[in-house]
Design a protein around this nucleic acid. Structure first.
Length: 201
DNA sequence: CGTCTGATTAGG
DNA sequence: CTAATCAGACGA
């Protein structure tokens, strides 16, 4: 299973589509099928946090074993969940961008909407629970404390699910990496064809 | 130190 | 389209 994370990063990003991501937290279990990922290819990828081999407290974990968990805080208010890939010393990672909720949907709703500041009466739809990298972390209860821990050796792990044929996986440019020049065009975002849970815009 | 910015989201 | 909101990155 460790070899699963040792796949080349672009391949791993596609293999993850269709797998079930599970988080066993104190509050309860939540899980969802991964329907959207993005690959970040390390020192040569201008969109990557590890571009140019940048090695800081934040990016350090990307130099660790594949299957390590990279969490980061962004825009002053969101966290994102990534799985480190590439051999040790090659700082690559796969960002999990969207899930189709499976287990613990009530808990997901609670986590996302209980501290709702504005109109709580609005009917929120299940597609808004995990259809984005920040949303899924909130719904799944994935926080910065997971930084550096290992997939399948703690409260966060993958479950095999039904195999997704390659023809069901689409590829396109990554989201919000306009600062990355040419790299912004690379088709390193992958998603499950037709899934309503894929992030918008 | 000071300044800028971002692998986002929700609302208008 | 923009506000929200702040840690990290980097230059001085």
């Amino acid at each position: 299973m460790n070899s699963f994370f040792s796949q080349p990063t672009l391949q791993l990003a596609q293999s993850l589509i269709g797998m079930e991501l599970v988080h066993e937290s104190k509050e309860g279990i939540t899980s969802g099928i991964i329907v959207e990922t993005e690959a970040y290819m390390g020192p040569e990828d201008r969109a990557a946090h590890s571009y140019g081999g940048r090695r800081t407290k934040r990016t350090e974990v990307m130099f660790d074993q594949p299957g390590s968990i990279y969490m980061y805080f962004i825009y002053g208010m969101h966290v994102c969940f990534n799985i480190v890939s590439g051999p040790p010393g090659k700082p690559e990672a796969v960002l999990i961008r969207a899930l189709e909720p499976v287990s613990g949907i009530a808990l997901m709703e609670k986590r996302r909407y209980s501290s709702w500041k504005r109109s709580p009466a609005q009917a929120r739809k299940i597609m808004h629970l995990t259809s984005g990298p920040g949303k899924l972390c909130q719904a799944m209860g994935l926080g910065l404390e997971l930084y550096g821990s290992k997939m399948n050796k703690g409260p966060v792990f993958l479950k095999e699910n039904k195999k997704i044929p390659a023809s069901m996986i689409e590829a396109g440019p990554r989201i919000n990496v306009h600062y990355a020049g040419e790299a912004a065009e690379y088709p390193w975002r992958f998603w499950l064809r037709g899934s309503p849970y894929v992030s918008k815009s």
